[in-house]
Each structure stands twice: as structure tokens, then as C-alpha cells.
């Protein structure tokens, strides 16, 4: 088990290393470089100044040398400086990360809270009217463009009804907890929609399969109520594949957080990455991307470990070459 864990962590580190190299090269291909931007801001700059500035920032050296330099510094905890916010990148990430974690955590909780009962009700009578309704809603959930769902929610709840704020994190009066919560309702609903649909579909399928198993027949035969059979016997087994799905779904949730935060003006990691890429803030974009990827990989690993814990039949061993 420990060897397996170590193997997986090494794997994740290799992925991150490759990703950092690839992203570093790609960011070098984005329009302009830091000096161009300074030149644009100052008309009196001379070509000697430009050469001096380039040497100062190391831009006269080859790309791979710059990358190794960046990597060395990053491993010593120096993630560089954000051009856009004129702050150390680490400070910005430390400030934005918790917001995104709250957003994703809440969306995940809402998604599970809706998907569990929906799938249970649907699986009770497959092909029935309730099942069909749930199924149709699921199709809608996986098919709706998240940013459009956000727009529609803003139109309905902010523009027409005026019940909820259209964006931001606190009201003008800088309100309390209730105000902050109100600002989170629409973003969480937007982010949860696609996950609700995906979880419900998988859970429903797993439940239907579990309800056809022999142990369910046995449980029914010994006179247990249908509720106990479903909740205590079938559901517990049907939840297993959903654990794996949760891990795999984290990547989509991080992608979704980018859209949601941008739509609702929430200063989280997603919006920060987007703004950094759009504003040529290389250091911040690179670190933001790596943090998002690292979080996703960790989530995957956690899901796999939880799976092994919940299902005693699964034993992880370090496999050669994997």
C-alpha cells in the first residue's frame, strides 16, 4: 500500500514537471514579452535600455536555461512576482485558493445532496415517469453550456426577480455572513448543475444494477422493507463507482470554476488564471495552472485511496512499469 502510494505520488510529480515545462514553453509563445510591455508604457526608452532590461530579466538567454532557472527558484519556494498585481505570486495564490476550494466544496456537497435522492427515486422504478423525468433533467444538465446557465440565472434571479446579486463577493455595505452566502448561491448552482447530472446518471445505473443482485433478493426474502433494502444494501454498493467518478470529475469542476468565477466576478483561482493569461502575467499563469493541476491530481489519488478503503476487495500494489 505504501509503495503504491509512493508510486502514485512520484507519477503525479512527473506529470506536474512535464506540465510545467510544456506550459513554460507555451507561455513563451504568448503575444509580447515583459519588456515589450514596458516599452509600450515609456516612449523615451532607448534600444540600450531594452537590451539592458532583457539581460536583467534573463530574456537574452535560451528558453531551456530560463526554464531550469525558474524551476530551481520554484523548488526553493520562490515562485516569482506577478506583473499584473505587483505582488509575489505565492501571496496571490494563498489569497485566491481558499475561495475556489469553498466554491468547489459547496458545489460538490450540493451535487451529492441532489444526486443521491434523485438517483434513488429514479432507480426505484426504472422506465417509469419519475425515472424519465430525472433522465431528461440529467441530459439537460450535461448539455447546458455552463456560462449560459450562469447568464440565465443572472437574468432570472438578479435582473428580473432581483432576489440575488449578479456577481461579486460582498454587497456595497460590506455585509455579514448572510450577504456573502447570498453572493455564493448562483455560482454554486451554476457549478453544481453539470455534476448533479453526471452523478445522478452514474448512481442511478449503479443502483439499478445493485437492485438486481442476489443479495438484494435475499434481503427482500428475509422480509426487509424496500426502504431498508435500497438504503442499507443496494445504495452502499452503488456508491462505490461514484467515488471514482468524484475523483475524475475534479478536473471538470476546476474548469467549471474558471467559467463560474469569471461570470460572477469571484476572485478565485479560476478567474486569476484567466486574467493572468489574458494579461500576459506569465509567472502567475504558470503557477496558477500548476496549482490547479496539482489539486486535481491529488483529488484523483484521494478518490482512489478512498475507493480501496471502502471496498475491501480492492488491494493496490505497486505494479512494475506503471
Amino acid at each position: 500500500m505504501l509503495r503504491y502510494l509512493a508510486g502514485r505520488i512520484v507519477q503525479a510529480l512527473v506529470v506536474l514537471l512535464l506540465l510545467s515545462a510544456a506550459t513554460y514553453v507555451l507561455l513563451g509563445l504568448m503575444p509580447g514579452d515583459p519588456i515589450d510591455l514596458m516599452v509600450g508604457a515609456d516612449p523615451r526608452i532607448t534600444s540600450q535600455d531594452i537590451a539592458r532590461l532583457k539581460a536583467l530579466q534573463g530574456l537574452d538567454r535560451p528558453l531551456w536555461e530560463r526554464y531550469l532557472h525558474w524551476l530551481g527558484a520554484a523548488l526553493h519556494g520562490d515562485l516569482g512576482y506577478s506583473r499584473l498585481y505587483t505582488q509575489p505570486v505565492l501571496d496571490i495564490v494563498a489569497d485566491r485558493m481558499p475561495r475556489t476550494l469553498v466554491l468547489i466544496g459547496l458545489a460538490l456537497a450540493v451535487a451529492l445532496a441532489v444526486a443521491l435522492p434523485a438517483a434513488t427515486v429514479a432507480a426505484r422504478n426504472p422506465g417509469g415517469i419519475v425515472d424519465r423525468g430525472v433522465n431528461l433533467l440529467c441530459f439537460a444538465g450535461i448539455s447546458v453550456p455552463p456560462f449560459w446557465l450562469a447568464l440565465i440565472l443572472i437574468i432570472v434571479f438578479a435582473v428580473v426577480l432581483g432576489w440575488l446579486p449578479a456577481g461579486g463577493t460582498v454587497g456595497a455595505e460590506g455585509g455579514g455572513l448572510l450577504d456573502r452566502a447570498a453572493h455564493l448561491v448562483l455560482p454554486v448552482a451554476t457549478l453544481a448543475a453539470a455534476s448533479v447530472a453526471a452523478y445522478t446518471r452514474h448512481l442511478r445505473a449503479a443502483l439499478i444494477e445493485a437492485l438486481g443482485e442476489d443479495y438484494v433478493r435475499t434481503a427482500r426474502a428475509k422480509g426487509l422493507s424496500e426502504r431498508v433494502v435500497t438504503m442499507r444494501h443496494a445504495l452502499r454498493n452503488a456508491l462505490l463507482p461514484v467515488v471514482t467518478l468524484l475523483g475524475l470529475d475534479l478536473g471538470s469542476l476546476v474548469s467549471g470554476a474558471l467559467v463560474t468565477e469569471t461570470m460572477f466576478a469571484q476572485p478565485g483561482m479560476g478567474k486569476t488564471i484567466y486574467d493572468a493569461v489574458m494579461g500576459n502575467d506569465y509567472n502567475l499563469a504558470l503557477v496558477g495552472l500548476l496549482v490547479a493541476a496539482a489539486a486535481t491530481l491529488l483529488g484523483n489519488l484521494a478518490a482512489d485511496l478512498a475507493y480501496a478503503r471502502l471496498d475491501p476487495r480492492i488491494v493496490y500494489r505497486a505494479e512494475p512499469g506503471a
Binding site: L248, G251, L258, Y274, L289, A292, T296, L297
Partner: peptide, 8 residues
């Protein structure tokens, strides 16, 4: 599949 695709 697992990576956050949109930022990439």
C-alpha cells in the same frame, strides 16, 4: 481526462 482542461 483528469486534468483541468479549460485552463490548459
Amino acid at each position: 481526462i483528469a486534468l483541468p482542461l479549460l485552463p490548459l
